[in-house]
Amino acid sequence: MVDHEHIIEVKEMVKKFGSFRANDRLTFYVEKGEIFGFLGANGAGKTTAIRILCGLSYPTSGEIMVAGHDVYREREKIKRKIGYMSQKFSLYEDLTVSENIRLYAGIYGLGRNQIASREEQLLERLALSHIRNRLIREIPLGWKQKLAFSVAIFHQPAIVFLDEPTGGVDPITRRQFWEMIHDATEEGITVFVTTHYMDEAEYCDRVSIMVDGRIDALDTPAALKQQFESKNMNEVFLKLARR
C-alpha cells in the first residue's frame, strides 16, 4: 500500500561525471499530492537530480521509480506522466497564447475536442481570454509565468517539476503563482519545486536541502526550523550550507 503513496521513490541514487559525484547516494521519496521543495545551493546537484527524475539523463546507479515507472527502462512512459516548467519558460515567444496551448496539448496527444474545451477552461480561469491571440512576447512576465505553469499541467500529469518558477516576478504575482500551485495539488498533482526564495520553502509540505551532492536535511518546514533552532527557513538554509 505504502508504495502506491510514493509517487517518486529514490534509493541510493548516484550520478558521477568522471570522478565528480554530482549526486551522492540520494535517498528520498515524494508522496502523492504533496508539494516537495527541493532546495540547495548553486552547484549542489539539484539540476542533475531533476534531469534524471524527468527521464532526461541516466543515473550512474541507484533505484529510481517515478510515477510507477523505472527511470532506466521506461523513460518514455515517465515523460508522458510528468509536466515540466523552468525559469526560462517553455513557451514560444513568436506564437500566440492560444497557439502555445494547442501546441503543447498536441504534443501530449490530446484530442481535438478535448483541447478546445480545456483551452477555454484554462483561459477563463487565468482571465486571459481577451489576449488569446496576442503573441507571448507581448504579454507581461507575470502572465507568461502563470500560463507556462498552466501549460505544464495541461495534460494533467501525475507530477509537475518546477525549476525556479518564480524567478524575478513581483511579490504579488509570486504569491498568486503559489496559490495556483496549491490549487494544482488539490487536483491530485504532485509538485516538485526548486526555488531561491526561502519564504517559498515555507509553502512546501516537505523540504529537502542538498549540500555538495547529498541531501543533508529533509522534513516539514516546521520540523526543520525546530531541528536547527531557526525562526525561518532562510536561517535553516544558511546554517546547513555553511556547516
Binding site: 548553486n42 525559469q87 524575478g168 538554509f237 544558511l238 550550507a241 555553511r242
Partner: peptide, 10 residues
C-alpha cells in the same frame, strides 16, 4: 544576486 542561492547571496 539573481539566480544565486541564499548562502552565496548573503
Amino acid at each position: 544576486t539573481t539566480g544565486v542561492d541564499a548562502v552565496s547571496r548573503r
